[in-house]
Simulated scan of single mutants.
Amino acid sequence: MGDHTGIEWTDKTFNPWWGCSRISPGCRNCYADQFARRWGHDVFHLGGQRRMLSDAYWRKPLTWNREAERTGVPLRVFAASMGDVFEDHPQVTTARARLWEVIEQTPWLRWQLLTKRPENVSAMAPWTGAWPDHVWIGTSVEDQRRADERIPLLLQVNARVRFLSCEPLVEHVDLTTYLVERTDVTDPYLDAPEGAVVDGMEHVGDHWVRRARIHWVIAGGESGPKARPMNPAWARSLRDQCQTAGVPYFLKQWGEWAPSGYHVIRSRPVAGSVLVGEPIDDLGHRVEMIRLGKKRAGRLLDGQLHDAVPPLSTRPSHRA
C-alpha cells in the first residue's frame, strides 16, 4: 500500500502501522478492519496488537518528496488510512515518533493527519505554537455529537489547514458555528467598504466575519456490505453551509447507496432499495436510495462534482 490510493481527496496514503480501536458510530462498519482481515490481520480492537510496516515501506515518503520537489508540485499524503496517528496505544509510541521525523524531512508533501482523537493531539504532536505549513490536521465528524465534541479541540491546533471528514455521514450535522465566526461592527472600522479585510476579518453586510476557522470539509457515505445510506439532504446541507462560509467542500462518495432520483411512497421494502428522511410532502413521499456499490454510485450531488480542496502552497514549509 502507499503508491496508489482509492481515496479521492489525497494523492498518496502512508500507513506507519495498521490497527486501532472503535470509539464512535462512524467506526461500526470499519472498512480498514475489513481490509485487514482479508489479509489475516486482527488489529482493530482495544488493546490488540498493531501491525508495523517495513523499513522499505517507511522510505516511500522520501521518494515522494523528491518527486514533488522535482516537479514543483506538492503531493498530498494521508496518514493514516489504516489506523489513527493519535491513538493512545503503547505499541505505536516509537513509530509515531519516527513519523514526526519523516514529516520534518519531507517539506514537499502536504501531510493530512486525520484523527478521531483530537483530545490527544496537543500531547502527542511534537510542535508547539504554529505547526509547519505542510502539516494539515483533521478530525472525523459523523454526527452532531462528534462535531460538538471534537471540533472545539481541533480548533485549538494552530495549523494552516484544519479539516473535517464527515464520513461516514450518519445524520444531519450543523457546522455553522465552526465555519464562520461573526462579531458586531464596531469602531474604528464602521465605515469600511463591503469586502474590506481588517485584522483577518471581512466586512460583510452589517457584520465583520472571521472566515475559515475550518478550512476544508469532506463528506461521504458508507461503503461495504453493511453500509448505512447517507440521506442526500445531509450532503446538500453541508454543501450549502460551506458555500455560505466560503469553505472548500469535497463530496468523496455516496458509498454503497445512491439516490435513485425518485420520491416514493411505499409500505413494504423492495429488495435493493430503502427510503430515507422525513416525508417531503403531505402525501408521504420520501427519498429513495438504491444499492449500487461505491463505483457505480459515484459522487455526483445534484448532477455536479464537488471536489474543492485548500490551495497547495509551493513555498518552503515554515512555522508561521
Rank of each mutant, 00 (worst) to 15 (best):
E8W: 05
D11R: 02
K12A: 05
N15P: 01
W18L: 13
G19S: 10
I23A: 15
I23F: 04
P25T: 13
P25C: 10
G26F: 06
G26K: 03
C30P: 06
C30M: 10
Q34W: 12
A36N: 07
G40C: 07
G47D: 04
G48R: 06
R50S: 01
M52N: 02
L53W: 06
S54E: 08
A56D: 12
A56G: 13
W58E: 12
K60G: 01
P61T: 08
P61G: 04
L62Q: 11
E69F: 03
T71H: 13
G72D: 12
V77M: 06
F78W: 05
A79N: 00
S81A: 15
S81L: 13
M82E: 13
T93N: 07
A95W: 14
A97L: 12
A97Q: 15
L99W: 06
V102L: 13
I103F: 05
T106G: 00
P107V: 10
R110Y: 04
R117V: 07
R117K: 10
E119W: 02
E119S: 12
E119G: 02
V121W: 00
S122D: 11
A125V: 12
T128P: 00
G129Q: 06
I137D: 00
V141F: 00
V141E: 03
D143M: 03
R145E: 14
R146T: 11
A147N: 02
R150G: 03
L153A: 04
L154Q: 04
Q156G: 12
V157G: 00
N158S: 10
R160Y: 01
R160D: 08
R162W: 02
C166N: 04
P168G: 09
L169H: 04
L175S: 01
D184W: 05
D187S: 13
P188L: 10
Y189N: 15
Y189L: 14
E194G: 05
V198T: 06
G200K: 00
H203I: 09
V204P: 01
H207G: 02
R211S: 02
I214T: 09
V217R: 00
I218M: 15
K226V: 01
R228V: 14
W234H: 15
A235I: 11
R236S: 09
L238N: 10
R239L: 14
C242T: 11
Y249V: 13
K252T: 08
W254C: 03
W254Y: 11
W257K: 08
A258I: 02
V264N: 02
S267T: 13
G272Y: 11
L275D: 07
L275V: 05
P279Y: 15
I280G: 01
R286T: 06
V287H: 02
K295L: 04
G298P: 02
R299E: 04
R299Y: 04
R299N: 14
R299S: 13
R299C: 07
L300P: 00
Q304S: 07
P311V: 10
T314I: 09
R315Q: 15
R315N: 09
S317M: 11
R319F: 05
A320Y: 04
